[in-house]
Amino acid sequence: MSEPATLRALSGLPAAPAALAESTLIMIDCQNTYTRGVMELEGVEKALDQAEALLDRARSAGVPIIHIQHDAGEGSPYDVRAEIGAIVDRVAPRGDEPVIVKAFPNSFVGTDLHERLTAAGASNLVLAGFMTHMCVNSTARGGFNLGYAPTVVANATATRALPGNDGAVSAAALQAASLAAIGDLFGIVVDDAGAIPG
């Protein structure tokens, strides 16, 4: 049996990410929600370390940065009015970095993200944040469907175990499958930010 090929490769789409200087960084749902309690993600602190380093690099390069924050209403683990739904301090917005609040997994749905990116002439997106199988995956697909070129930084993402038809699906298995699904067509997946040229 031959080695598997991605739809990206079969379609002749780029295999290497655009330069960071030519991209917009989108920090997806880096909220306290995922650092404790029922929604705590496996490897979340290491992923936040990498997201923080990526954010610092983007700030140093002067590239546009947009923060996304999920809101599921008062009393939920995603309540943006409460500390649990706040963006983690070490990756919180600075200065005039915008925050877009969303209510759906795809950051483009019901928000002005597309309009902001269009106005800025953006085409290349670098995505980091949570959860890999949910909002990162949905936003990468949504961006691709709108004509953007997403790159996902794998070690700046994380997820959690889920129940499956044949028993629990481990966080590691779900992480690998989610990244592979993105990389099949919707975006370039790199292990770490060092794989993205300046």
Rank of each mutant, 00 (worst) to 15 (best):
T159Q: 01
D166R: 14
A72E: 11
V44C: 12
G73C: 13
N32S: 07
A193H: 13
N145M: 15
N106A: 08
V126K: 02
R94Q: 15
F130T: 02
P14D: 11
G142V: 06
M131A: 13
L117Y: 02
A193E: 14
A140V: 04
V190N: 11
R90W: 09
L13Y: 10
P14G: 10
M1T: 12
G142L: 12
A119V: 10
P77N: 11
D184G: 09
G37E: 12
R90L: 11
D96A: 15
H67F: 10
L146A: 11
V88D: 04
T118G: 01
L127F: 10
A176H: 08
D89L: 09
I68G: 04
C30P: 01
Q31S: 05
F144Y: 15
G121T: 08
A180Y: 11
A15Y: 07
L162Q: 11
G12M: 05
E97M: 05
L179D: 02
S138P: 01
L127P: 01
R8C: 03
S178H: 08
D191E: 14
A58N: 01
I28P: 00
V80D: 01
I188F: 01
N32E: 13
A176C: 05
I100S: 03
A61C: 08
A173P: 00
L48Y: 06
V169M: 14
G12L: 07
